[in-house]
């Protein structure tokens, strides 16, 4: 540890920075894709006819019983097969994250909507609102307020999970740190550096969510 040259960090900084950008890129795209697919699945489960709802339920429960690493391996193998040509680790990892996170987002969204008491729907319908209006103006605003902090927390978990692309060698921040640490022979310093970075980012994010959560409901 004593022979660690501080200049080394600045020398490898661009490489690590690129890794961090890759992590964030994965995070944002997976949030967007997973969020869209997850919403679709939640709607299928709540409002769909029985076979559709069962299909969505099967998707959600199936994905949630498999380790993320397994899913990453699956798509690393499958995506090139399906497309018919080699494709970068980033794309296959992104597909894996979208497919995987959608299952978790769907569960959160469904639970959020179903946590609004049924009487609220009855009250909205009784006041003459149509079903879509009832959802738009009464149910969803309440549901979103309940699920937003959970969705954001799940996204912090997702950010930590992006480190798992290590297993397919995609250079996210974690992998970049690991590669550098081994190349330079300074495992202790670089891994502790990664601890500081991940902790700072995730702690700041989770504290912000808690802060938002404490704010009074805007009118």
């Amino acid at each position: 540890m004593s022979d660690f040259d501080p200049d080394l960090l600045s020398a490898v900084a661009p490489f690590l920075w690129d890794g961090l950008l890759t992590s964030f890129g994965l995070l944002l795209l997976a949030m967007a894709g997973g969020g869209l697919l997850g919403t679709l699945l939640a709607v299928m489960r709540i409002a769909g006819p029985r076979p559709i709802a069962a299909l969505a339920a099967g998707y959600v429960n199936g994905l949630r019983s498999v380790p993320l690493i397994m899913v990453i391996f699956w798509f690393y193998l499958l995506v090139p097969l399906v497309i018919g040509r080699p494709i970068g680790a980033f794309t296959s990892a992104l597909v894996a994250f979208v497919i995987f996170e959608a299952a978790y987002y769907a569960e959160i969204i469904r639970a959020g909507i179903q946590s609004v008491p049924k009487q609220q729907l009855a009250a909205a319908l009784a006041s003459g609102l149509g079903p879509l209006q009832a959802y738009r103006f009464v149910i969803l605003p309440q549901a979103v307020r309940k699920m937003l902090p959970i969705l954001l927390s799940q996204s912090i978990a997702l950010f930590q999970d992006t480190s798992l692309v290590y297993v397919v060698g995609l250079h996210d921040f974690m992998t970049a740190v690991s590669v550098t640490a081994n190349r330079e022979g300074h495992l202790v310093e670089f891994y502790l550096f990664a601890v500081v970075i991940y902790f700072t980012l995730c702690f700041a994010a989770s504290q912000s969510i808690q802060f938002l959560n404490r704010q009074p409901v805007s009118p």
Binding site: I156, S163, Y191, L192, V195, Y198, F199, C202, S206
Partner: peptide, 23 residues
């Protein structure tokens, strides 16, 4: 809770495996 929740599990494993014995 905050410490163990805000560091990726993969990194925690690496710290236990590669870093702790050195420290």
């Amino acid at each position: 809770v905050e410490t163990f929740r805000n560091i990726p599990l993969l990194l925690q494993l690496f710290v236990w495996y590669f870093v702790l014995p050195e420290l």
